[in-house]
Computed example of a mutant assay.
Amino acid sequence: MLIDTHCHLDFPDFAEDLAGYVARAEAAGVKRMVTISTRVARFEAYRTIAERFPAVWCSVGTHPHNAHEELDVSAEQLAKLSEHPRCVAIGEAGLDYHYDKSPREAQAQGFRTHIAAARMTQLPLVIHARQADEDVIAILREEMAKGAFPAILHCFTAGPELARVGVELGLYVSFSGILTFKTSEDLRRIAAAVPLDRLLVETDAPYLAPVPFRGKQNQPAYVVETAKTLAEVRGMSLDEMAGVTTANARRCYWKMDHAAPVAQVA
């Protein structure tokens, strides 16, 4: 069994055959998927998908690209929405200095708001960090000193220092299909150093399809390929790595094992 800890099943790429994508994932051994929020305003779409499929769960939050659009969303509002039984995480939120689609001040404000919600609920914060290692580290250290909160460094592509600090602060580190790329030697070295009990795998579908599907639309079923590469990096079998990452994901997304079944929610 594997868990795709981060995908975007609400995106138009999946609209024509969403049930098919979910079924193919389950057939590949991916028994749980978490569809991640990019806009709080779209929460109904995420929870509807999670209510429809027993294998799918969701989060609530604002992607840093959209931070300036939802600065009025409070930590209390995020916490309230996260009470939905199929919602298992806060985010994704964080800092993206590669595209800078939202002013950096807005990204930082949104990041801190989401951290506050994660602290309030003890649901994991899904962190987006791109080319902003120093500022992410600074905010994490400052905020963790105010009170602990669980979090995931999702689709990890940053440097070893952010990985080291993240682990030091108790965060999980999630690897996507980028880990399988020929040019990702440095990333594989980081993956080799992360403690086993902090490792997660994800697709970030529909983006970043792993080898041998690189260049095609990604889907949750393909998380198997990332898990294979991670297993090779750690000198383990795929079954062993699946067991490790699934146990980690269930511990991180603890609400999965405590929520009501889909039938009761619907």
Rank of each mutant, 00 (worst) to 15 (best):
I90S: 02
E83G: 14
P103H: 00
K80P: 13
E105A: 06
G94Q: 04
A89K: 04
S82D: 08
V88Q: 05
L78W: 02
A93N: 12
V88T: 12
L78E: 02
L81C: 07
S102W: 04
K101F: 14
C87W: 12
E105Q: 09
P85K: 05
K80H: 15
S82Q: 13
K101P: 12
L95T: 04
E83S: 14
P103Q: 06
C87K: 10
Q107S: 01
G94E: 04
H98G: 11
K101V: 13
G110D: 05
A79H: 12
L81P: 04
E83M: 13
V88L: 11
Q107C: 01
K101D: 13
K80L: 15
A79L: 07
R104V: 11
D96Q: 06
A108S: 14
A89T: 04
A106P: 04
L78N: 03
Y99H: 12
S82W: 11
L81E: 01
D96H: 07
S102C: 10
K80T: 15
H84A: 09
Y97I: 06
D100N: 14
E83D: 14
S82V: 11
A106N: 03
P85A: 02
A79Q: 05
E92S: 00
E92D: 03
K80E: 15
Q109D: 14
E92F: 02
A93W: 09
G94R: 03
A93D: 07
G94L: 04
Y99N: 07
Q109L: 14
H84S: 10
K101T: 15
D100S: 13
A93R: 06
G110H: 08
E105T: 04
L78M: 00
G94P: 10
C87P: 10
E83W: 14
K101Q: 15
E92C: 03
L78P: 02
P103M: 07
A79G: 07
H98N: 13
C87F: 12
G110E: 08
I90G: 00
L78D: 02
I90A: 04
P85W: 05
Y97L: 00
A93Q: 06
Y99A: 05
H84C: 10
Y97G: 00
L95Y: 06
K80R: 15
R104S: 04
Y99F: 12
I90F: 03
C87N: 10
L81I: 05
A93I: 11
D96V: 08
Q107T: 00
K101H: 15
A106S: 07
K80W: 15
S102Q: 08
S102Y: 04
K101R: 15
P103K: 01
P85N: 03
I90R: 02
A79C: 08
A108H: 13
A79D: 09
G91W: 08
Q107V: 00
H98V: 15
K80F: 15
